[in-house]
Design a protein around this nucleic acid. Structure first.
Length: 553
RNA sequence: UUUCCAGUAGUGUAACGGUAGCACAUCAGAUUCUGGUUCUGCUUGUCGAGGUUCGAAUCCUUGCUGGAAAACCA
């Protein structure tokens, strides 16, 4: 029973290509990050698209680092990118680097010179910019454009040999200075940079530009569908032109709209700024939209893949509501995360008619969503418990299904209790809630016949362990900080991180493992923070809250 | 005001000339030993104007709106 599923526009193109027998039905995509920053959720969209398409059409995907600008690139980024792609659950066919092709690219450039389609230009960047004209005015050729092939060959060889300083000369394609497309007005192919490259070391002092590296790398690898974002649309004629003139494998470029998400920023430049200026801990700060940040926050690869599936692929600019991402992680964790009890903002509940010094072991299933509860664990219960401050109200409003004098609630996995009184300190803060319990109402063997509307969670005072808990809110206060007036950083949410130094957790949680998500009942999903947790001090990150249907009146 | 891309509920995304659907969000209600989950239901949409056609979200013209495009970045 194949489910009717509509295709996105790229799938339609691929199916059309397969139908027509193009490339004998072969599909080879590539994910081409520049190793100059950490991957974010926007890259995840591209990764899921490229790898997903290959999986769907029996093809393959190369991981290719677009490392043609040595001054911005670093192995640190290469390593993090590989780790993130793997963590997302994808396997690349080959790990490649544009720098692997430097020799071939150089030869291709020489071929262009020999065809009379490239020349060495001695102009300064400013001169080149002026000579290019504007979108409404054509550019003007300069004296260098008419250099002979022999002279260009010699000069280009000398550039490669290191005879000239940075910026002294560039190699330009000879296309069309009057083109309405600025990228066709004799784009730069090579520039001189006496810089150390993370892979090729000091072997080169000239490096190809994106336009003379990306398409050529695609062609060398025989990529069938080269998928990139919208801003490369104007580059496509150039992409095709080089391939045509050099008679290379005809890779085709297709463009889709990048992901934007509310309450965050999605540019490597801006994310780098947040890191460098210390607005966040690092690239993997749980508030960051980076893959590593989401991982540390407790997001699962599956939830991110699901998110990328749901947002779709199209050519129009979009702004995805972050609540969709939250929906995806809740959906996943609801089915898989074990339930535990933790009290984040404690007040003491005393069961006055329960024997002092007595401990009962209560049973709680791990996950009510699983068939058999996914097993369970024992939870110690005693006369004094920690409960959530917000679960008691001195003057409860109507439909408050928690504690208040005279009200009854069930203590999850334990007894029904009735609130009799409470104690206040000198400042008027409630410090203790006193209850009596219904002995016949014990979970699993309730014969009391009493039904209550509310159930609250608790942790036994003498058995409680402690942990630090970190609560996160959106990083920015406005939906689209990049589109606001002034500095995007002035819209940072000052309360995006709230640290609870001491929360009480049930003893079982002391065994929490890194990388595993838990549901703290009624509070949300949490996971151990891999950076801050130590054996003697647990630190939990809140991945996401539970959906809250309780609206105060 | 040069060229290119794009306009479908609040946000995304389908419908490929033939009943505008789905998801998230929102709001109601049912169920619930998590005010979670699950279930049910409601509200809300084709940018405007012309045309072609028996019939237009879809094709054509035009206007409007948004975005992109000039870096020795990718």
């Amino acid at each position: 029973m194949a489910e009717e599923r509509s295709l996105n526009f790229i799938e339609e193109i691929i199916e059309e290509d397969i139908r027509e027998g193009k490339n004998s039905g072969r599909v080879l995509t590539r994910f081409p990050p520049e190793p100059n920053g950490y991957l974010h959720i926007g890259h995840a969209k591209s990764i899921c698209l490229n790898f997903g398409l290959a999986l769907e059409y029996n093809g393959k995907t190369n991981l290719r680092f677009d490392d043609t600008n040595p001054v911005k690139e670093d192995v640190e980024y290469v390593d993090s990118i590989k780790a993130d792609v793997k963590w997302l659950g994808f396997e690349w066919a080959e790990e490649l680097y544009a720098s692997d092709y430097f020799d071939q690219l150089y030869e291709l450039a020489v071929a262009m010179i020999k065809k009379g389609l490239a020349y060495v230009d001695d102009s300064t960047p400013e001169e080149i910019a002026t000579q290019k004209g504007t979108p409404t005015e054509p550019g003007k050729p300069n004296q260098y454009r008419s250099r002979s092939i022999e002279e260009n060959l010699t000069l280009f060889a000398e550039m490669k040999a290191g005879k000239y300083p940075d910026g002294a000369k560039v190699l330009r394609a000879k296309v069309d200075l009057a083109s309405p497309n600025m990228h066709m007005r004799d784009p730069i192919m090579y520039r001189i940079k006496h810089a150390h490259h993370h892979r090729t070391g000091d072997a080169w002092c000239i490096y190809p530009m994106y336009d003379f590296a990306h398409g050529q790398s695609d062609a060398i690898e025989q990529i069938t569908h080269s998928i990139c974002t919208l801003e490369f649309i104007p580059h496509r004629p150039l992409y095709d032109w080089f391939i045509e003139e050099l008679n290379l494998f005809p890779s085709k470029q297709y463009e889709f709209a990048r992901l934007n998400m509310t309450y965050t920023v999605m540019s490597k430049r801006k994310l780098l700024q947040l890191v460098e200026e210390g607005h966040v801990e690092d690239w993997d700060d749980p508030r960051m939209p980076t893959i590593s940040g989401l991982r540390r926050r407790g997001y699962t690869p599956k939830s991110i893949r699901e998110f990328c599936e749901r947002i779709g692929v199209a050519k129009r600019e979009n702004m995805i509501d972050v609540s969709l991402l939250e929906f995806c992680i809740r959906e996943d964790l609801n089915k898989s995360a074990w339930r535990r009890m933790a009290v984040l903002d404690p007040i003491k509940l005393v069961i006055t008619d329960y024997p002092e010094g007595k401990t009962e072991m209560m049973y709680g299933e791990n996950n009510p969503e699983a068939e058999d509860g996914d097993g369970g664990r024992e939870i110690p219960f005693s006369r004094e418990l920690w409960i959530e401050r917000e679960d008691f109200m001195e003057i409860p409003p109507k439909k408050f299904f928690r504690l208040g004098v005279g009200l009854m609630v069930r203590l999850k996995n334990a007894y029904i209790v009735k609130c009799e009184s409470f104690v206040k300190d000198a400042e008027g803060n409630v410090t203790e809630v006193h209850c009596t319990h219904i002995p016949e109402s014990k979970s699993g063997g309730d014969s009391s016949g009493i039904s209550v509307k509310g159930t609250i969670h608790w942790v036994s005072v003498p058995h409680a362990k402690t942990a630090e808990v970190r609560l996160y809110d959106r990083l920015f206060q406005v939906e689209d900080p990049s589109n606001e007036e002034g500095d995007f950083k002035s819209y940072l949410n000052p309360n995006s991180l709230h640290i609870i130094e001491t929360a009480y957790i049930e003893p079982e949680l002391a065994k929490a493992e890194p990388g595993v998500g838990y549901q703290f009942m009624r509070k949300g999903y949490f996971t151990l923070d891999k950076n801050h947790s130590k054996a003697d001090k647990l630190v939990f990150n809140r991945t996401v809250t539970l959906k809250d249907g309780w609206v105060k009146k």
